[in-house]
Design a protein around this nucleic acid. Structure first.
Length: 855
RNA sequence: GCCCGCGUGGUGGAAUGGUAGACACAGGGGACUUAAAAUCCCUAGGCCGAGAGGCCGUGCCGGUUCGAGUCCGGCCGCGGGUACCA
């Protein structure tokens, strides 16, 4: 008997696929195409189990589609710009470029043994000048089409390191290196006009039927369409009125104050000559720029002394406050506060002793607001107090509509639609990104670079010496020569833009580039026309909003600029979001009270308790934590492949959890997967050794089970139920192992089993196929089809419930009529006993499923 | 804070509103073996019962339904996102 040696067969079949160019994607109009794409990785330098799971899922889809006659495009690349490369250079010297390319080499070496059906000839990294040069060309076309512009925007500023910080570099309001309190600072930056497409990006979500509903919902909320009223408050000092936008104009009679953003023009004007306001605004500028920091931070306000008139009652004056939670980016940067029906406004008013006026009360419990704002759903009827549009009992929705109508007819306000979605700021004050291809000329201003000068490459050195990344800030900004250039327009000495692009730009069009990765234009329309759209996109739920929304915007922009066909405005036909790979954390408490994390290899179970191998100290086990280097709970796929083989790793990451959920990596689970593959191997060996003419019993039973397996496994693969497919494969393997059927039936069964396993464990499948004398490669064999006639069941088991509780069962022919079933049920012993001569109140027969007797 | 998910045996999980716990791991028992490993067989939610069987049970509280893990409302806990992490 032979032994299952994964390393041997895996290398053998990977060579066979390479030799046959099985995965090289070539445009072929005679075949239906299928483009499957997994979100490409950041080259961190180490492949982790999450990658293995992600790519294995894509591989299952790709191989299945090849078997069903599709011309498959399954490419891979690297999202290679970004901060970790610069951080590494800062921490340990070296160059971001060297670090990145060396990591890419390592990761490719780690990925290849997985046996993925990738067309490696299409590989690229976004930091290849060949790629980012085309991205610069795209940028110029977008500039030309008025999709890009410049404006001021705030960044996190570290006043000690004198550098811009990313949000993740701000820890509790302080810079991660300097520890200095971070400030908000304004810079002139580049923006994509994504907000112009708000309505289009929102309404097109309805067409994305094969996207998870939760992703569409998240994007809908993110775009945040709202209908409200825009109107102005007259100032008592006669100065320019203050325009506000509100989604709850119905609560205008409960207005307590008018609030403006610290970045509002009025606030800025006061800042210049009022030291108290200047101090307050300086205070507001402390802290980070994130929505979370602003929303959870302490709410601060300052009375400006300005007074405005209530639009419905000129005798009613309201104070104008500057409040740190009002965003200049949303609406008009000014609001009116109605504390009775907004918790944040209420907290603010209680803190600063401002009035709280109820505008409506609950019908069932009409008591005034104290310290909890009354915020019922807008669809709930409430009792209005003194409503200016004459309402008494009405819902919020009705009141809003009536208010907008009244304001418009009286001419003091306008109903407007607004979106929460802001324009996409793409400027980054960093080195390791795609340079923005524009030039600043004293005479001509901002001038686009000429396309023939692209790519504008990043400089590797500065003045013949390696760039010093230990100095904070942007090396491009202080580079002695790189900035200097001739103005593309007038030829005078000018300076390059030193901002680089947000790395989300890189990942917003790579899927299009894969269709023609070496083209000398961003895309090749003939190739894009054939290969687009991505039929199945697979990646993490963490990208539900930004990456996917930006890609949807970019696809539209690329259509406008002539780089993608109209059909690609929505580039991803189907989306699947997979869960993470998790692993238990083993922790003890150190002398200083801080947790100490232990590697899985350093702990063991003794008498049902988890302890340290060395000392026997009890270890706390935290299950299902995201794998993280700092928690010492990372399992290296390379180790798994070395000990068990790629097929085992692939089988395991698919087997235990539904793909959309997290999967817990356990050593015993991997061991079990390996054992099972051995079992299949041995089964193949045993069947191969049978006398080909040997007869047996139960041929038909075996083949019926085989056809059921074909049906169930296929359904699982098509619906991303890989764990269900694998459960069925386990069950069918058990049936086959116990079968006494003849040699011919068993051989047919094992070959079909190999085919059904081939998307998950392709190497083992090829080997079984070859061993059983299958023709050619299994990857080229057509997918098996279930024979409907073999799937029909003659009898069904119907559980009998009495008042919803299972009390017995009957077995009946599948086609038995309802009436006959009822008769049998009423005669059933459990039913007669429960009825005790009485008539049932109700008898429910669900054909083929269940019977319920209500007594 | 806000938006979106998730929560089922000792463990990972299965279950178009229709027999809760498929399939697997760990466990227990057994076969084979001088022994061990490997392999194979049986068992297995909890409680009560000799058994037949009964009661309880899908994070918590309530609702809809002949019937709820599944649908609805309210909580609790965990995870993702929150526009410069990718």
């Amino acid at each position: 008997m032979s032994r299952y040696v994964a390393a041997e067969i895996e290398a053998k079949w990977q060579n066979a696929w390479a030799g046959a160019e099985s995965f090289k994607a070539v445009r072929d109009e005679s075949k239906p195409k299928y483009y499957v794409l997994e979100m490409f990785p950041y080259p961190s330098g180490k492949l982790h189990m999450g990658h293995v799971r992600n790519y294995t899922m894509g591989d299952v889809v790709a191989r299945y589609k090849i078997s069903t006659g599709h011309n498959v495009l399954h490419p891979m690349g690297f999202d290679a710009f970004g901060m970790p490369a610069e951080n590494a250079a800062m921490a340990s010297g070296g160059h971001p470029k060297d670090w990145t390319y060396s990591n890419i080499d390592t990761m490719v070496d780690q990925m290849k043994p997985l046996g993925l059906s990738l067309d490696w000839s299409r590989m690229f990294a976004t930091c290849d000048p060949e790629y980012y040069g085309q991205q610069q060309a795209l940028f110029l076309d977008m500039l030309d089409s008025d999709l890009v512009y410049r404006k001021n925007a705030v960044v996190n500023w570290d006043p000690v390191d004198m550098t811009v910080l990313a949000n993740e570099q701000v820890e509790n309001g302080r810079g991660w290196r300097s520890g200095a309190l971070v400030e908000r600072r304004e810079l002139t930056q580049w923006f994509f006009k994504i907000s112009d497409m708000s309505e289009e990006l929102l309404s097109a979500l309805d067409t994305l039927e094969n996207w998870p509903a939760k992703v569409r919902l998240m994007q809908e909320n993110w775009i945040g369409k709202s209908r409200g009223l825009q109107f102005s408050f007259e100032r008592t000092d006669g100065a320019e009125p203050i325009t506000v936008y509100t989604t709850r104009p119905d609560t205008l009679m409960g207005a307590s104050f008018v609030g403006i953003s610290p970045d509002h023009p009025i606030a800025k004007a006061l800042e210049a000559d009022n030291p108290e306001v200047a101090d307050f605004i300086a205070e507001c500028r402390k802290g980070g720029t994130t929505e979370e920091a602003i929303e959870t931070g302490e709410k601060l306000g300052l009375d400006t002394g300005i007074r405005v008139k209530h639009p419905l009652n000129p005798d009613w004056e309201l104070p104008v406050w500057i409040a740190n939670f009002i965003l200049m980016d949303y609406g008009t940067g000014a609001i009116f506060a109605c504390p009775a029906h907004d918790q944040r406004d209420l907290d603010f008013c209680r803190k600063y002793d401002l009035p709280v006026v109820d505008t409506f009360l609950a019908l069932d419990d009409p008591k005034p607001v104290e310290n909890e704002a009354f915020v019922p759903p807008k669809t709930e009827k409430v009792k209005w107090l003194n409503h200016f549009a004459g309402l008494d009992v009405a819902t919020g929705e009705e009141a809003i509509a009536a208010t907008i109508g009244k304001a418009e007819s009286e001419g003091w306000g306008t109903g407007v639609t607004k979106y929460r979605l802001r324009d996409w700021g793409l400027s980054r004050q960093r080195y390791w990104g795609c340079p923005i291809p524009v030039v600043h000329c004293e005479k001509c201003g901002v001038v686009p670079e000429k396309k023939e000068n692209l790519p504008i490459e990043l400089p590797y050195d500065e003045g013949g010496k390696p760039i010093d990344f230990s100095v904070p800030g942007n090396p491009l900004d202080r580079h002695p020569t790189w900035r200097d250039c001739a103005c593309p327009s007038c030829g005078a000495p000018a300076q390059r833009e030193t901002d680089t692009m947000d790395t989300f730009v890189d990942s917003s069009w790579y899927f299009a580039r894969f269709t023609a990765p070496r083209a000398t234009t961003p895309t090749d329309m003939a190739e894009a026309e054939y290969w687009m759209n991505v039929d199945q996109y697979i990646g993490g739920i963490e990208h539900a909003i930004l990456h996917l929304l930006y890609s949807r915007f970019f696809a539209r922009a690329m259509h406008i600029t002539g780089h993608l066909p109209a059909k690609s405005k929505e580039p991803f036909d189907a989306l699947f979001t997979q869960g993470m790979v998790t692993h238990a954390i083993f922790q003890t408490t150190g002398d200083n009270g801080r947790p100490v994390y232990h590697y899985p290899a350093d702990v063991e179970d003794r008498d049902g308790k988890t302890v340290l191998k060395t000392t026997g100290e009890a270890v706390e086990v935290i299950p299902s934590a995201k794998m993280s280097k700092s928690k010492n709970n990372v399992v290296d796929p390379v180790d798994i492949i070395t000990s068990y083989g790629a097929d085992t790793a692939r089988w395991f990451v698919l087997s235990d959890s539904p793909p959309e959920r997290d999967v817990e990596w356990t050593a015993s689970g991997a061991e079990a997967a390996y054992k099972h593959l051995n079992r299949v191997w041995n089964l193949c060996d045993k069947i191969g050794a049978m006398d080909p003419d040997a007869k047996g019993q139960g041929d038909e039973d075996l083949l019926r089970e085989m056809h059921k397996a074909i049906r169930d496994v296929t359904l699982g693969v098509e619906s991303f139920g890989f764990n269900a497919s694998i459960a069925k494969l386990y069950a069918f393997t058990n049936v086959l192992a116990k079968s006494k059927a003849g040699a011919a039936a068993q051989k047919q069964a094992i070959m079909t089993l190999a085919q059904l396993m081939s998307p998950m464990t392709p190497h083992l499948a090829e080997d079984i196929w070859a061993h059983q004398g299958g023709e050619g490669l299994i990857i080229n064999a057509p997918w098996p089809v279930a024979d409907e006639a073999m799937l029909v069941e003659a009898n069904v088991t119907l559980p009998i419930q009495i008042n919803g509780k299972r009390r017995g069962e009957i077995s009946v022919p599948a086609d038995m009529t309802k009436e006959e079933v009822e008769k049998l049920v009423l005669a059933h012993e459990a039913v007669t006993r429960a009825l005790d001569g009485a008539q049932p109140k109700k008898l429910i027969v669900v054909p083929g499923r269940i019977v319920n007797v209500v007594i």
